[in-house]
Every structure is written in C-alpha cells, then in structure tokens.
C-alpha cells in the first residue's frame, strides 16, 4: 500500500537498477505465493514471477502504469501464470499437488499448540479448500491487502462478484471452522 511513496517506476524507466532491486525485494515473495495458487508449486511460481520482472526490465524504457504499481504487478503475474497453466488438466493436477504439500506442512506445525497457531493453521486449511476463484479473491484481500476495486481489476471480474465471493468465503469459513476450533475457545 505504500508503493506510491516510492518513485520506482520513474527510476526504473531510466534504468535505475537499485530501484528495480528495491521493487523486487518489496514484492517478489508475496507475488510468488500468489502465483503458486495458479501454477501449483512455489518453484514454478518463482519462475513465473522472475519472468514477469525480467520482462518489465527489458521493456523498462516504455513502461507505463495507469493504476497502482502493486495491482499492475499482480495482474501481470496472474496473466503469466494463466499462460503457464493453460492446459486445464495440468492445472488441476498441479493444484492437487500443491494441496498435498500444504497438508503435509500443516501436519508438521500441528504440534504447535498455541491457540493462535491452531486457529491460523485451521483458517489456512479452510481457505485452501475454498473454490479457486473465491480463494483468490479472499487471499488478495486478506493476505495481499488489496481493496475490492483493485481485486476486480486484477482478477478481471466485476466488483459485485468480488463482493459476493468475499461474502461466500466468509460464510463457508465460518461454517467450516465453527465446528472444530472455535468450539474449543
């Protein structure tokens, strides 16, 4: 949310490599997590996001932004990730593999018995189980701090759809979670 206090795009247009490095460090990790939701693995996601950054650098001289830098980056990563997984079956398989890994990761941390970790792990699992589009909308809002309007832009959907997906995500998370962890409060 604080990108507008940086002058990265203007500096990058003038081949300022330090600005590019700063922009990379500020956004790369979160963009990889975002891309992994599409391509199914963090390793593939890292390739996708690096390609996006490389393309920006190669076309830096005429790089223009109409909206926020952050929304632009997520949109670019989404497009590239969708191209990388155009084959639906690959996509489904990849996502299943991703879920599998997540489940293992959850198992490892299940021993952490603080309430906060239990809850946040339970929420993470429940979010993972949401239908793809609903999960993306919810994560863009809660994990990546985008507004509804920005999410509509990034996902190329109507703002009303964002609103509905957020409402449904909230409802299913509550239904999913009220049974187990919240009852132990």
């Amino acid at each position: 949310m604080t990108d507008r206090n940086h002058d990265w795009p203007a500096r990058i247009r003038l081949s300022d490599r330090e600005a590019f490095r700063e922009m990379f460090h500020a956004h790369y990790g979160a963009l990889c997590a975002f891309a992994a939701q599409y391509v199914g693995s963090l390793d593939k996601a890292r390739d996708v996001v690096q390609e996006v950054f490389l393309t920006i650098w190669e076309h830096r001289a005429d790089w223009t932004l109409t909206g926020s830098l952050k929304a632009y980056l997520y949109q670019a990563v989404r497009n590239r990730a969708l191209n990388a997984t155009r084959n639906r079956d690959t996509r489904r398989q990849a996502y299943a593999a991703h879920r599998q890994r997540h489940a293992q990761a959850n198992h490892r941390t299940a021993e952490d018995d603080t309430y906060y970790h239990q809850l946040s792990e339970a929420v993470r699992r429940a979010v993972d189980e949401l239908p793809a589009r609903r999960r993306m909308v919810f994560l863009l809002h809660r994990r990546h701090d985008f507004t509804y309007r920005e999410i509509a832009e990034i996902m190329d959907i109507a703002p009303k759809t964002v609103e509905n997906q957020m409402g449904r995500a909230l409802k299913s998370l509550r239904q999913r979670l009220s049974e187990d962890i919240l009852s132990e409060l």
Binding site: G29, A33, L119, V123, R124, F138, L170, L177, S178, L182
Partner: peptide, 27 residues
C-alpha cells in the same frame, strides 16, 4: 467468531526466506 477468523486469515504474504529472495534476485 468471524473476527477471530478474519484476524487469523491475515497471514504473511511471502512464503520465502531472505536467502531464497537474495538467491532469486541474483538469478
């Protein structure tokens, strides 16, 4: 309940550690 879920869903956006970040930048 919803507020607890909401707060717990605000998890770190980046899954990468500093070393991976630096290695990927070098790449």
């Amino acid at each position: 309940e919803l507020e607890s879920i909401w707060a717990a869903s605000n998890q770190p956006a980046s899954p990468l550690d500093e070393a991976t970040l630096d290695a990927d930048w070098d790449q």
